[in-house]
Each structure stands twice: as structure tokens, then as C-alpha cells.
């Protein structure tokens, strides 16, 4: 099921601007790896390379290689659609599909594809339970997701990503538009996910990284500056720039 993500000499660019320079690291399976760094340092670009979303951005180019377990993510024979089934993603702003009900949103990964899917109701329940949202929405599964709070919408998006049974979950600043209580609930969900999935969490919030992650990678100006166990990186950083960032001297 959950696999480590091996990133080797990854580079990414938007047109002439190179956003990532030669990133190499391995994100361990069944753990939360936090990606931190100031705005514009390439954190989002990095996770968007893992599920091949970066190339959907106009002008987006990627070179280098990423492996899910032993299988390459980039290559002439690799279908990005297959990669995205294996690598789920949750975005900064909640993105429920407004034309669908809560239930339809959760199983959208199946109903948007041709063919008659299997038992969707129980699949939806399982995914919503995993995302910690079931008790809050079980009586209004046919309602619009737009009536949910921001935090509930975000957990709905997590449930939707889990429903397709991925191996990896990418979370791109999932709490940046949420209030503290919703943030706490989403964080709780993230920690539970790490028991089954490889979780990559981009965050602006250093405290969040220390709360939920086992490993942390610090990015600056498109380069990986330091990567290691979260506790070590925050208590005894090897690099001056890391120290400057986590002690709040910039960013």
C-alpha cells in the first residue's frame, strides 16, 4: 500500500523561471513529511511535481525523476492519470464540486469516470469516517457542500481524495484558510492518515509542522536546504538558514 517517494535531481520551471533546482530526497512511507519555507520557495511546486499537476500550469516543465516505490512518475510510458489515482491531493482552498451533493463529491473520483461504479454509499461512509467528517454530515449527505464550513469542506476534499484509495496524500497548505478549531480537526485527520498513507504536508505554519510531522524539509529559493527528522531540524538545525527561518528571523 503506502510507498516511499524517492525524488532524484528534480527540477521544475514556469517558462523561463526555474522554480526548483536539483532536489533530491526520500519521503518515508506511513509518515507525515512537512515541507516548510517562505512564500515562493517552491514548496507547492515541489508537491505538484509528485502527482504531475505542475505540467498542467501553463509553461510548466519538469525534469529529473521521482519514484513511487520503484516505479517512475515521469517517462514516456507513464500516464499522468494513473499517477494521480495513486497520489491524491488536497489544495489550499477547499474545492468541493458545487454541482454535486456532499455524497456525490466524496465518490466523484468514480462517478466522473465512465462505467458503473460499485457500492458507493459504503465507500463514501468509509472515506468520510477516515476524514473525520462522518458524524457531522451523515444526516445531510444530499445537501450542497457549499453549506458546510470551510473546515468541513476541506475534510470533505480529504475524504474525496481518500475514496480513490491512493497510496500517497499531498496536502498543499490545507489549513491556511481555516480557523484554529477547524485547523485542529484537520491536523487530527492528517495524523491518522499517516498510519496508512505516505503524507506530504506543505505548510506555512512552523508550529503545525512540529505538531504533525515526523520529517521536515526546508526549502529556500527553489532549493532543498535541509531535510531530517522534525525534532532534530527544529531543535538542532544543521544549516544557518534553517535556523534563521525557524527562529523567525525571516519569512
Amino acid at each position: 500500500m503506502a510507498v516511499p517517494i524517492r525524488v532524484e535531481h528534480l527540477n521544475a520551471a514556469f517558462g523561463p523561471f526555474q522554480a526548483l533546482h536539483d532536489v533530491t530526497l526520500t519521503l518515508p512511507a506511513r509518515q507525515v513529511t512537512a515541507i516548510i519555507g517562505p512564500s515562493g520557495c517552491g514548496k507547492s511546486t515541489f508537491v505538484r511535481c509528485i502527482n504531475r499537476m505542475h505540467e498542467e500550469t501553463p509553461g510548466g516543465r519538469v525534469w529529473g525523476q521521482i519514484y513511487l516505490g520503484d516505479e517512475p512518475v515521469y517517462g514516456p510510458d507513464v500516464d499522468p492519470v494513473v499517477i494521480r489515482r495513486r497520489v491524491g491531493m488536497v489544495f489550499q482552498r477547499p474545492t468541493p464540486f458545487p454541482t454535486m451533493s456532499i455524497l456525490e463529491n466524496v465518490v466523484a473520483g468514480y462517478t466522473l469516470l465512465p462505467g458503473r461504479p460499485r457500492d458507493l454509499e459504503s465507500l463514501a461512509e468509509r472515506s468520510l469516517r477516515q476524514a473525520g467528517l462522518w458524524d457531522e454530515v451523515k444526516d445531510r449527505l444530499r445537501d450542497s457542500p457549499l453549506n458546510l464550513s470551510g473546515g468541513q469542506q476541506q475534510r470533505l476534499c480529504i475524504a474525496r481524495a481518500l475514496a480513490v484509495e491512493p497510496e500517497v496524500i499531498l496536502l498543499d497548505e490545507p489549513c491556511s484558510s481555516l480557523d484554529p478549531i477547524s485547523t485542529a480537526k484537520v491536523e487530527e485527520t492528517i495524523m491518522e492518515l499517516a498510519q496508512r498513507y505516505t503524507v506530504v504536508l506543505v505548510t506555512h505554519n512552523i508550529q503545525q509542522a512540529t505538531r504533525v510531522s515526523q520529517h521536515t524539509a526546508f526549502f529556500l529559493l527553489g532549493r532543498l536546504i535541509e531535510f531530517g527528522p522534525t525534532e532534530q531540524l527544529f531543535t538542532n538545525p544543521a544549516n544557518e538558514q534553517t535556523e534563521a527561518y525557524i527562529t523567525g528571523r525571516f519569512g
Binding site: 489544495f91 466522473l112 469516470l113
Partner: peptide, 23 residues
């Protein structure tokens, strides 16, 4: 329609033409 919705559908492993049409 916000770009996010298209990306959210793509990220679920929905082919681009279906994401365009059905989302």
C-alpha cells in the same frame, strides 16, 4: 469556473476531457 475545480478533478485521476466536460 475557478481553475481550482479543474485541478481538483485532475488530481482525482480524471482524464482532462472528462474533467472539462463533467466538472
Amino acid at each position: 469556473v475557478p481553475r481550482d475545480l479543474n485541478e481538483a478533478a485532475l488530481a482525482l485521476g480524471v482524464p482532462a476531457w472528462l474533467a472539462t466536460l463533467r466538472v
